[in-house]
Write a protein that binds this DNA or RNA. Structure first.
Lengths: 204, 204, 204, 204
DNA sequence: CATGAATGAGAGTTCATTCAT
DNA sequence: TATGAATGAACTCTCATTCAT
């Protein structure tokens, strides 16, 4: 019995390896050539498996891109960052934590997020995945906004909604992408963004 | 001779109409479904012409998207804005002018720019057009940056390069897109962006 | 103008030729190997055209089989036969006319009907076409049944419904197919079927 | 040894159960969607077994359909009916017995025969099975025809061959199928068919 | 200038089947 | 015996594009 379980787990592990290899190859190609111009056959070739192994072990083309977004949902760094933010009483510190946290998560999932955003128009499934990913981050930033309102010290006239929007402006996908496109270093960018957000949100 | 010229000019005008109809239909479809998922046949159908007329009067698929970027290059509003900026001696006013100018140009070419950016990965030609469009705007902002440095009153440590980058951060495509996604009004957004850029660039 | 019309009609005629060639080739292959096992590529090859010409000039695979059933709907022989039957006052003659009429129509459309019936289960579209073809013939036989009831001389206890069913039993698709499978000659079969139907329907 | 035999017989019984479950599921799907449109995977799913179990316990796709025809070959009802017919001296009774016998066998194997006939064109193996099934029934009816000739009382000019053909016309697969399609009850149909066959074969 | 007909290339997907366990 | 993983081979269909008119 033990033997059979061991065996079966070996098989399962091997299958999981195959799956990961394929998804990785797909991500690389999607990032390089775009979703629309990447064929499933090319993914299979890059992964070194037969064309149909892509279908049996991952699924169709859209499953390949879904696999990119799935595992980002419960990023431990993001969860931890939100936790620390909620525990903080200092608005400036909260913004710094937000900058650092988004920087770390963004850095870790840079390729996947880029693929999702860049290929939104190529396929409805990608669009859905991109929307979902955006939703997750905006929700987190909205929670940060609520905390900032609780903590106080904001410019007059700012409600939680508006604060959430400004946080998204400075720490959302587009902001980080622009920062990266400008060649800014992750840490430098985080500092600058935190400063700018502070200027926009905190009472002088 | 006169007759022939007249005729040919009528024909030419008619041909130009056909062309514009097709390009418009293409833009609408590209914006709605994305470049990759829009077929030339669909463009022809939407424009009410035969499939081949798309080829004879505009060109292939990439010519359709190129046509979107071409006519934006020498936008008179942009030219006028740059002229007024160069004539101004006040850094704050320069930023306000920049915000207003980019708002107006962006508003006028919103759909075309969106198509270019959103479909960069779908086709190398689109990517090239997007890069070209970006280049144009960044060049203009770099000229503004130079003027700001000339005028003076900037925070210490900022060189023209960095100023150009910050201007792109606040007035570039992504910034405006984020503002629009957040539901911000054009004028309101222009004011807010000008303020933020002032905070980032001008000595207190 | 005349020239252009002529030209365009030449083109149209050529296109119609292409279409007919393709549909014919498809019918031959469907009859020989069955619908499911006949690929569109094989049809194209048999017709001597490019694969996609099948799509542009006829349509998808199901359009090929639909094309077989379409033109049988208003068969002039069938229409003429029904007319003569309605004008006849003799039940025996009506049955003979029915036998001859169905024989002639069946003979002319033998291959098409066979394809439709034999491939009903292979594809919903084929099933629909087969049902439609059956409907047409059964409706015609029901009209014959009504006339028989009007003319009188039937066995007691037979209503128009039942007469229509018996007519279908003797002159329907399956009856003719069985007769053909048995190697019976068309005319011989028509006579025998008319006799049998007379025995089943007419008062002695 | 006893233990091993017991075990192996338990296993064998279990295996036979699995096989029967799979063949049943296949028959249901073939009847519902047709042979060509039923995938082996669908059969496995419907039977609640792994895809490969279909291969290990029954065989490939054509083995599934062969399994439907195999066990019908030596139907005890058919054998018994033939025996009673051969013992009878009355032509009318022979036709009644034939009608009842074919009705009972047909009723019992309705689904299997329908699958075989309806999917002849989908697969050469199915066609072969259908032909074999037809052969069996036609052979039986030919034996009945021989007996009828022996017994006498037939219309003049009918030889055994022709009698066998007429029997097939009235009691063959297509006849029963038409009767069923017309909504006729089994017993009613048997009576009517026997009457019609009598009219066609027996001297008045 | 505009068009109908035809095409070549390629894509995604499904299927029946076989190894290794 | 039964199974999960992987595969090779087709197949249908769509697309961008080009002739000939």
């Amino acid at each position: 019995m033990a033997t059979r379980e061991y065996r079966s787990s070996v098989r399962a592990r091997h299958a999981e390896d195959t799956r990961r290899t394929i998804v990785d190859a797909a991500a690389a190609l999607f990032a390089e050539q775009g979703y629309a111009r990447t064929s499933v056959a090319a993914v299979a070739a890059a992964a070194g498996v037969a064309l149909n192994t892509v279908y049996t072990s991952v699924g169709g083309k859209s499953a390949l891109v879904m696999a990119l977004s799935d595992d980002g949902a419960e990023d431990p760094v993001a969860v931890e960052t939100v936790r620390r933010i909620v525990e903080s009483d200092d608005a400036g510190e909260i913004l710094r934590l937000t900058a650092e946290g988004t920087a770390r998560v963004r850095r870790a999932r840079w390729r996947a997020v880029g693929i999702l955003l860049d290929n939104r128009t190529s396929d409805p499934d990608v669009a859905a995945a991109a929307t979902a990913a955006t939703r997750v981050v905006r929700d987190r930033l909205d929670r940060v906004a609520l905390r900032l309102v609780e903590v106080g010290g904001l410019r007059p006239g700012l409600d939680a909604d508006r604060v959430g929007q400004v946080l998204w402006f400075y720490f959302g996908f587009e902001a980080w992408r622009t920062a990266r496109d400008l060649g800014w270093d992750w840490d430098e960018a985080a500092g600058w963004l935190a400063d700018q957000a502070a200027g926009a949100l905190l009472a002088p």
